[in-house]
Design a binder for these strands. Structure first.
Length: 147
DNA sequence: GCCAACGTTGGC
DNA sequence: GCCAACGTTGGC
């Protein structure tokens, strides 16, 4: 799950402990969010910044949460076509789990994984929520421990 | 700041 | 349903 650290970083999540992952306005990303279940683990990825890469882990603590910002006319994520009775945007609540001692940089990820194993290394990929095969996820976690 | 690689909108 | 125009993401 990507976030621009200028907007919301792993440090922010560490302080907040939990947060609603709102603001996703892409149907494919939303569909992946819908598939997430309580207890699932997700990687926190810092995008569009100097130090790009995976910075830690979070736990999904609540699934199928309605993204309230879609109803807020003052929010940049406001969706005028969404209604209370028929909301378009669902997301999840996440909890801080771990901040890696060292970032696993995008460069490292590119060296270690093909775009089949890890979509985030694929050029032009803009999805902010991306599924990761279990094998790949395990390798990434091992990497974070070895550092 | 540039631009490739998308996704979305809306006229037809 | 097609597609041009436009908007956004995000690495570089």
């Amino acid at each position: 799950m990507k976030s621009e650290p200028e907007v919301y970083s792993i440090e922010d999540l560490k302080q907040d402990n939990t947060t609603i992952w709102d603001g996703v306005r892409n149907y494919q990303a939303r569909n992946y969010l819908k598939q997430m279940q309580k207890g699932d683990i997700a990687f926190f990825y810092h995008s569009n910044c100097k130090m790009i890469g995976i910075v830690g882990l979070m736990t999904i603590v609540e699934s199928n949460v309605i993204d309230r910002t879609q109803f807020d006319a003052n929010s940049p994520y406001f969706d005028p076509k969404s209604t209370i009775n028929n909301p378009r945007w669902h997301t999840v609540k996440v909890q801080f789990k771990e901040k890696f001692t060292e970032i696993i940089s995008l460069n490292t990820l590119k060296e270690e994984f093909t775009s089949n194993e890890l979509l985030v290394v694929k050029k032009g990929n803009r999805l902010s929520v991306i599924p990761i095969p279990e094998n790949t996820a395990k390798k990434i976690i091992l990497k974070s421990i070895n550092k």
